[in-house]
Design a protein around this nucleic acid. Sequence first.
DNA 1: TCCTCATTCTCACCACATGAAAAAGTCGAT
DNA 2: ATCGACTTTTTCATGTGGTGAGAATGAGGA
Lengths: 273, 273
Amino acid sequence: MPTAEAIAQSGDRVSNSAVIQRTFSVLEAVAASGCAAAKTVATRLEIPLPTVYRLLNELADSGYLVYLKDTKRFELGPKCFELGLSFQQRLVAPHPIRQITDQLHRSLGTAAYFAIYRGSDIILTYCSDCEKHPRLRPLRFGFHEAAHATAFGKILLAGMPEPQRTDYLEARGMQVLTPQTMISREALDPHLAEVATRGIAWEHEEFLPRQTCAAVPVRNGTGMQVGAMAISTPSSKMVGRAKEVESTLREHAGLASSYLRGGSVTVPVAEHA
Amino acid sequence: MPTAEAIAQSGDRVSNSAVIQRTFSVLEAVAASGCAAAKTVATRLEIPLPTVYRLLNELADSGYLVYLKDTKRFELGPKCFELGLSFQQRLVAPHPIRQITDQLHRSLGTAAYFAIYRGSDIILTYCSDCEKHPRLRPLRFGFHEAAHATAFGKILLAGMPEPQRTDYLEARGMQVLTPQTMISREALDPHLAEVATRGIAWEHEEFLPRQTCAAVPVRNGTGMQVGAMAISTPSSKMVGRAKEVESTLREHAGLASSYLRGGSVTVPVAEHA
DNA sequence: TCCTCATTCTCACCACATGAAAAAGTCGAT
DNA sequence: ATCGACTTTTTCATGTGGTGAGAATGAGGA
């Protein structure tokens, strides 16, 4: 129920269609509970039962839900899975980028990452890791919500025009993740300025304790920063390796940039694990 | 536009709401093209432009789409990804089952699978593989569409009551995948009867050339078949191992069944790769 | 600056979503 | 079988609110 003030605050029009909103709220209610009986949904959303049934059946007919006769519950249907797949297929880093990231992973013996801007979001489009060099657990393919606290987040924030960065940070806030996390613009802004000039972002235990990350920009044909290549590793394994990490990271980011520039296939040197 | 005959043919009521149907058709149009301009969608779906804009904006406001100003295109939004995640989290096999499947994978040196019924679908809820023992490429977490041609599909088909099996097969057809694929009920039904009595399904190059699979049932507390545990391996590696594979498969399926029966945690024996 | 295309607004029309109430299924237990 | 306690669907009068042609506005590009 969008209040008048909510409308005033947010710029977006809330002239929205009731049916569609309700349909999605029903779908999301089912998604949130994993499975839900019609009555439960009706109660939780305060929508009369016949209407809920209409919407649930509509969703089931369209394949977004399925009705399980045995439990008399609705669950998410194939279309939800397909939407997730489409999203993934559209956004996962292209093959050469994945190869370069894999090679970075092997070269440095660290987890490696590739992330991009999309609209006003930051999306992690590829993670390369293994049992010996695991990725940071909270990081996985998908939207990244803690840009202020990760190396690739910071390099991407540093590459944003000021107003957009402010929008970004105000929309998601700056969560405290470790004692080292920078949680004020006063701390972050100068840091990002330095990140921007140096062209590399380091992150020391700001996201997870005892973990260090580094990231450098990846640019497209027009020289615009479009993404970031990053690594993460236990801080203990980083001592004295900063130079090596930086140069290897830059080398691989350069490969990624030239792929994006040329479109021509960059052949990554074969390596042994 | 559902015609009168369409209504007559399919049993499902097509009293559906136009708005909702249109909304999803727009969403799916965007999903299918990866990204789409408003005009493209309007043309393809034959919906007037202002209406398409309303629906696209609605979807964008709800987070199912995002509007990319630079390309003037709509793409799938965060909610689509979340739906996919919810689906996955809800359906992925529980941890003990995954462990048991992993152990089966290691014990036999084959890719290993766990699949279940859900409603009238067959869902592959876990794959365990590695570089040395890769899974069959087309198989991945999610809905399984070629039950007639895989071992776990056949064991699950064999466990269905007759009318449901017919529904299942008629709804999806029986695609020809290899020269060995059984594509008629005349061939399949006796085979499934035998599968049911023996309690194991073998599949020899019916799904992919030069690949062999085997599957056995997994049962819940009431003794009802609820899933299947399966392996796949190159046929060349199978010669003379049928007995060993069968007993190891049964052993692990038994562990899975007793987990489902007891809920108590079955401790899988640690193994070395 | 103009021109073109993308996007939103306006508004009268009436389709169709709505939800209370009642009927029809479904299933388990006695 | 017979009841009872549900889940689910149908009915139907009401008026909300979705609709789309057309016009206006906005955003870039040459």
